[in-house]
């Protein structure tokens, strides 16, 4: 099946649409114009770069190179989780909580997906490993970022409630119980929504890409279902891990709420 190649003009016209949107945000004084432009530029540069990297990696398959790229992707995702919250954990914890949770969940799920489910040869075949990891990281990142932002935000805004519960003799887990559950829920809502809407409201990006690139729809659908389940599981595990570690870090061994540990 032939794939219709996009011309530079096509991409330029699409970029023009984005610029028009940016102009609108400037006209409305929304204060996000710069962010829109920078993000658009980043998309272009980053995707072009990864395209080149992947082309080279597919030609030179090695576990070390795949691991290196995976590490770079992990650190980049970890950084996004780190800078997102309004009040991140200060010091190494700011980076460590999110990145640790990302690593645990995404890489566990990735290994499971590669060695048990898809089973390419070799198992780290970059054509499968890298896109899988990318989608796992991308979605888990969003879940963890939302949940951690909620968690540290709630620790600030609900300080009096949390301390009141501590004063009445509850321990740190009891005092954080409602906040913790709410944070985990909020981290899971995006992926639950996309699973619920998949195929009806939206055609998921990966499947769309595969179909556009010429794969038979049923094959694309099978992969998409697999991916959805892996992503949902990874996001769930990652979000729970991040929130639990975050809750733990918010208190010290005397069950004191330690807001001084937030930046």
């Amino acid at each position: 099946m032939n794939v219709i190649s996009l011309s530079p003009l096509d991409l330029a016209l699409a970029a023009g649409l984005l610029l028009t949107m940016a102009a609108l945000t400037w006209y409305l004084r929304l204060g996000v114009t710069r962010s829109v432009l920078v993000a658009g530029l980043r998309t272009t540069v980053q995707l072009l770069l990864i395209g080149l990297v992947l082309r080279w990696l597919f030609a030179n398959t090695s576990l070390a190179l795949v691991s290196l790229l995976a590490l770079v992707m992990l650190l980049a995702a970890g950084r996004e989780v780190w800078v997102r919250p309004k009040r991140p954990f200060s010091g190494l914890w700011g980076f460590g909580v999110g990145t640790g949770a990302l690593f645990l969940s995404s890489f566990t799920v990735l290994l499971f997906g590669l060695t048990v489910l898809v089973q390419p040869t070799p198992w780290y075949e970059p054509q499968y490993a890298i896109p899988l990891l990318g989608m796992l990281l991308g979605n888990t990142m969003t879940g963890i970022a939302v949940a951690l932002d909620r968690l540290t935000g709630a620790a600030w805004s609900q300080r009096s409630v949390i301390e009141q519960r501590l004063l009445l003799g509850e321990d740190r887990w009891q005092a954080m119980g409602d906040v913790r559950d709410e944070c985990i829920r909020s981290g899971l809502i995006p992926i639950i929504n996309s699973m619920a809407a998949a195929g009806i409201v939206s055609l998921p990006g990966m499947m769309t890409g595969q179909i556009l690139a010429g794969s038979p729809p049923v094959v694309a659908v099978q992969y998409q279902i697999l991916i959805m389940f892996l992503i949902a599981a990874g996001t769930g595990f990652g979000t729970v891990a991040a929130v639990l570690v975050g809750c733990w870090r918010l208190f010290d061994d005397r069950h004191r709420l330690r807001l001084d540990r937030l930046g």
Partner: peptide, 20 residues
């Protein structure tokens, strides 16, 4: 004494009570 037990023993009534 574990901190939660200590706080139950020395009951502290904050000026602004909180309710959840």
């Amino acid at each position: 004494v574990p901190a939660p037990q200590w706080r139950r023993d020395v009951g502290f009534l904050m000026a602004e009570s909180a309710w959840w």
